[in-house]
């Protein structure tokens, strides 16, 4: 669509700008201020310059939890995006069944995050949970509270359970936008199932997949509540992701300065990755 130049449009955007700036800029500035000071208590603070950044950047804890975070986020994307597309392709296209599927799929999205943690905490326990009990009676030695591998797998499974529906719903709506004529043409050409997917469905899904990937990357990168409720970051530090490390530093040890420096570095990382992603996609659209 051709857009007209009109700077008066700023008046329409102004409320949004002010509202978001109020909640975003002031806390961000404060965190920047925290990050250059040693705060002993609310009234005593010393300026320490870039000391916290230097310390945090060389802290192996940052490297570990960053690595764990990247592995986790990429596992989440690698499982949820294909699975979501698959589920969307299998969904009935119209009628009562379609509505029913939509509602059922949306349920996990509408549960408060700590309740999601609680559900899986119960579900995975060997004594009172169906999954833990079933796995153990099948002879699998499963215990998410003691075994790091099991804990990690449970957090991942919980995330898949929780968020694949979002990808599926977005893809489903993308698929509905494809005119029936495209499929008929493909049938006349005797296109294979794969060709239909590759050349008709996938290109149409691109823009919704951008939304899905961006949302899932950003949210999984700062996942906090669900693993906290489920495992509390343990056993050991196997499920201690970035946010968790930050909270332990800021509140547990009251190291606000380093925690602030840490979260700004973290913010820069997410900013860079998202910007690269966003630019690549919008650029691909333009060059077509």
């Amino acid at each position: 669509m051709i857009k007209t130049e009109n700077n008066k449009a700023w008046f329409l955007v102004l409320p949004v700008f002010l509202l978001v700036a109020f909640s975003a800029v002031i806390p961000l500035m404060t965190v920047v201020n925290y990050s250059v000071q040693d705060i002993l208590d609310p009234n005593t603070a010393f300026f320490v310059g870039a000391e916290w950044y230097r310390e945090v950047l060389r802290d192996p804890r940052l490297h570990d939890s960053l690595l764990r975070q990247f592995i986790y986020s990429f596992s989440v994307l690698a499982i949820e995006i294909p699975l979501g597309i698959g589920v969307a392709l299998m969904m009935p296209t119209k009628g009562r069944m379609a509505s029913l599927c939509l509602i059922l799929l949306a349920i996990p999205l509408l549960i408060p995050w700590n309740v999601v943690g609680t559900i899986w905490q119960i579900f995975g326990r060997a004594d009172i949970g169906l999954m833990g009990w079933a796995l153990n009676s099948l002879g699998v030695d499963y215990n998410y509270a003691a075994n790091p591998g099991d804990a990690w797998a449970t957090v991942l499974l919980m995330d898949v359970w929780h968020w694949t529906s979002l990808v599926a719903l977005l893809c489903y709506s993308g698929l509905r936008a494809i005119p029936e004529a495209f499929y008929q043409a493909a049938e006349i050409d005797r296109a294979s199932r794969w060709a239909v997917f590759r050349y008709i469905q996938l290109p149409r899904l691109k823009s919704v997949l951008v939304i899905a990937v961006l949302l899932r990357f950003m949210d999984s990168f700062m996942i906090y509540t669900e693993p906290f409720v489920l495992t509390g970051g343990g056993p050991g530090s196997s499920t201690t992701f970035l946010s968790q490390t930050l909270v332990t530093m800021a509140i547990g040890q009251f190291d606000i300065g380093p925690a602030a420096a840490f979260s700004l570095i973290y913010f820069l990382i997410v900013l860079l990755v998202s910007w690269l992603f966003f630019t690549t996609i919008t650029h691909m659209d333009k060059s077509k």
């Binding site: 404060t30 925290y34 700062m222 997410v270």
Partner: peptide
């Protein structure tokens, strides 16, 4: 402006809680 709006979903909430509370 559009990109800046989106970046607000990216800030790790954990450390921003304290300034939020104070604000």
């Amino acid at each position: 402006l559009f990109f800046w709006l989106l970046t607000n979903r990216m800030a790790p909430p954990a450390v921003f809680l304290l300034p939020f509370f104070q604000l």
